[in-house]
Design a protein around this nucleic acid. Structure first.
Length: 265
DNA sequence: CTCAGTGTTCAGTG
DNA sequence: TCACTGAACACTGA
């Protein structure tokens, strides 16, 4: 369920397992969809024997850097993740790539539904897909003035803009809904008609929702009880928030959208 | 058996 | 050209 906070959790796992360690063995499953640029054999060849120096993230893109050669760039799609473990018996179901480091620690990326992507990049920040991304709300939340400037010229619904990775990188469907609920803005408002006060509420909530989710390592049971998040799944008929506010479901920007008409306008 | 889905991309439309 | 919509992608699990 990877939006920014879960990708950050993956980054922390990769960092804890791999930093300063050399890859002894690379295993890849044959998969022409997930390995969209380079074949599994090429990826394996380019990673074996290299020492991991960093685990980085921008939005939903996660990449591992090494002492030499290209970075390994991972995108989780709908169902990807990073797992760290020691024993082969703990290898996750649906694994696509496994790095085994000296000393036996392993990292794997599973991806049951194959919307994830595994690529290699010489200059990850300078090349697509990362080069086309907007600001990362955790690492670089813009000032109010910069936020307004970045928004200028955009036209669609505010929800559509929040989901646009070239605007803010890492926001997915539930985070967009959560931000708009807490900011008290209806998801289908046009961005051009939002005043400075409304934009500032959105900007602040974008920062706070993501920071909080990351602070609890994306363990959703630890999200505040007041969050819409806990009440939206499965589209229950008479859904309501912890405060008793009725939740409505709609399609906005092509996605299932949960919102609270009595709060959001 | 049917269907929705926490993501992204692309063809088609206005 | 832009902005937006809906379908497609591939598969699981409810």
């Amino acid at each position: 369920m990877p939006e920014l906070p879960e990708v950050e959790r993956g980054r922390l796992i990769a960092e804890a397992v791999g930093i300063g360690r050399t890859i002894r063995t690379v295993r890849c499953r044959p998969d022409r969809i997930v390995f969209c640029d380079q074949s599994p054999a090429t990826v394996s060849r380019r990673l074996k024997g290299r020492t991991m120096t960093a685990a980085c993230r921008h939005g939903k893109q996660l990449w591992l850097e090494f002492d030499t050669g290209p970075a390994l760039l991972l995108h989780f799609g709908m169902t990807g993740a990073v797992h760290g473990y020691d024993d082969e018996s703990d290898r996750p179901k649906f694994w696509k790539i496994e790095l085994e480091f000296e000393g036996g620690r392993r990292l794997a990326m599973p991806d049951a539904r194959r919307f994830g992507r595994i690529r290699m990049r010489d200059d990850p920040r300078g090349e697509p897909p990362i080069s086309g991304l907007g600001f990362d709300p955790l690492l670089d939340l813009p000032s109010p003035a910069r936020f307004r400037k970045h928004l200028a010229g955009r036209n669609g619904t505010i929800k559509g803009v929040l989901l646009d990775q070239s605007f803010a990188a890492g926001v997915g469907n539930w985070i967009a809904d959560e931000v708009l609920y807490q900011a008290k803005i209806a998801p289908d408002r046009r961005v051009g008609e939002l005043d400075d006060g409304e934009l500032e509420r959105i900007r602040r909530r974008l920062g706070s929702v993501i920071s909080k989710a990351v602070a609890v390592n994306s363990v959703s049971a630890k999200f505040p009880r007041t969050w819409l998040f806990h009440h939206r799944w499965g589209r229950p008929d008479e859904a309501s928030t912890a405060r008793g506010e009725p939740i409505e479901f709609a399609t906005v920007a092509g996605r299932t959208t949960a919102w609270v008409p009595s709060v959001q306008s």
